[in-house]
């Protein structure tokens, strides 16, 4: 299973069984299903995968940041588009 397949699997899990909202899951799934568009950007796709895996609605609250929230994922999606 390559990083794109894994991203699709984890995103579906987080959307269906976790807290990942549809508006965030959709653009992530678009990346996962278009590996040809993101060749050479696997490092960022791996980062995105980790962020989806550790998605927490309240990731930015509290004194320390040990989870990822919608801002992190949105930002990584933007970097994937820009770079």
């Amino acid at each position: 299973m390559d990083v794109f397949d894994e991203l699709e699997k984890i995103t579906n899990q987080q959307y269906l069984h976790g807290d990942l909202p549809k508006w965030l899951a959709d653009p992530v799934l678009a990346v996962a299903r278009s590996p040809e568009l993101f060749q050479g950007k696997e490092y960022l796709v791996e980062v995105l995968l980790a962020q989806v895996q550790e998605y927490d609605v309240y990731g930015e609250t509290g004194c320390c940041k040990w989870a990822y929230d919608h801002e992190d994922i949105t930002r990584t999606l933007r970097w994937l588009e820009e770079q």
Partner: peptide
């Protein structure tokens, strides 16, 4: 963005390093 990207990379690496021994990133 420069700083944010660097921080993202550090936190990603922290997660990967911890994962080898079942440790949390923090």
């Amino acid at each position: 963005d420069y700083g944010l990207f660097a921080r993202t990379a550090v936190e990603h690496a922290r997660m990967l390093v911890g994962k080898v021994v079942g440790a949390r990133p923090d």
